[in-house]
Design a protein around this nucleic acid. Structure first.
Ligand SMILES: [Zn+2]
Ligand SMILES: [Zn+2]
Ligand SMILES: [Zn+2]
Ligand SMILES: [Zn+2]
Lengths: 146, 146
DNA sequence: CCTAATGTCTCTAGCAACTATAGCTTCAAG
DNA sequence: CTTGAAGCTATAGTTGCTAGAGACATTAGG
């Protein structure tokens, strides 16, 4: 049995994050020692590693919640799990498209600036006027982290 | 003079967002009509368009705050503004690198799944075990939106 | 066995950048 | 003059944590 600190170390998750996951019901309530400290076994360890890995792949906690409850029913069809993964892929692809456009615009701005006064700065000028942009980079379809 | 609704419409910014920008000091306090409603002129319109455009390019409000105060001093060197833009470009590039790796992993997962039971689902399997991944996609260097 | 250092406990508040709600007042059209 | 849209303030919620306060538990050294 691991204490919360050892578990966090093993899984690469900070201690308050583990408590947070328990609080929102993503991890089950942990066993407690005589002195009321949380104790974890291998199952909890695996579940936390799953969460960590899915987070690293950009899944939201909501998606992870669904994936976890699916993985608790091994005899069911995996169609739902695959759909979640495909949705995540689509999300990443749309962010990639947007970021690629942003990168192009930022490069243009930076390259075009001759480096004089603010009054002549291409960066400031372009920021004030989207019509100077080469691409239509607006309207982020999604506004989620990572 | 525009009301807040007209301004928002013109700049593509929602009304509560404009009030929020004023509250955090990104926009100056607006003039008020006899009935205490906000009124905006062309300068406010330009400032809001600048903010909107910079947000669309992924700059944080903090960076925008700095850019705005720089643009208020047209005779100074634009080095600081350029540095902010270059930092933003670097940020976008690092997110792009990470998202590219994520996309590759997600594609692998989705493609490898044969679509049977959860117990045999490659998606669930890979999520539980990073060593099945082809790339090292972990440790997001930055955790900022978009 | 005692003490000091570290770890853990709960609870609360804070971060970015908004968005939503409630309960009011003001304005513009008919 | 009335009605409905738009505006006002203030507060709370969103996501995924992170940081702090103050109290209790555990462990290592002397
Ligand atoms: Zn410049
Ligand atoms: Zn633009
Ligand atoms: Zn599958
Ligand atoms: Zn992996």
């Amino acid at each position: 049995m691991l204490t919360i600190g050892k578990l966090g170390e093993a899984a690469g998750v900070k201690v308050p994050t583990i408590r947070y996951y328990e609080q929102i019901g993503l991890l089950p309530e942990a066993e407690r020692s005589a002195g009321n400290q949380r104790l974890y076994g291998r199952k909890a360890m695996e579940r936390l590693a799953f969460i960590r890995h899915a987070r690293d792949l950009g899944f939201t906690l909501e998606a992870i919640r669904d994936l976890l409850s699916l993985s608790d029913r091994p005899d069911q069809s995996c169609a739902a799990a695959d759909a979640i993964a495909r949705a995540q892929l689509a999300e990443i692809e749309s962010r990639l498209a947007r970021l690629t456009a942003l990168k192009a615009e930022l490069e243009r701005m930076v390259v075009q600036c001759a480096g004089g006064k603010i009054a002549d700065c291409r960066v400031i000028e372009v920021l004030g006027d989207h019509s100077l942009c080469a691409t239509d980079h607006r309207y982020p379809e999604s506004e989620v982290p990572s």
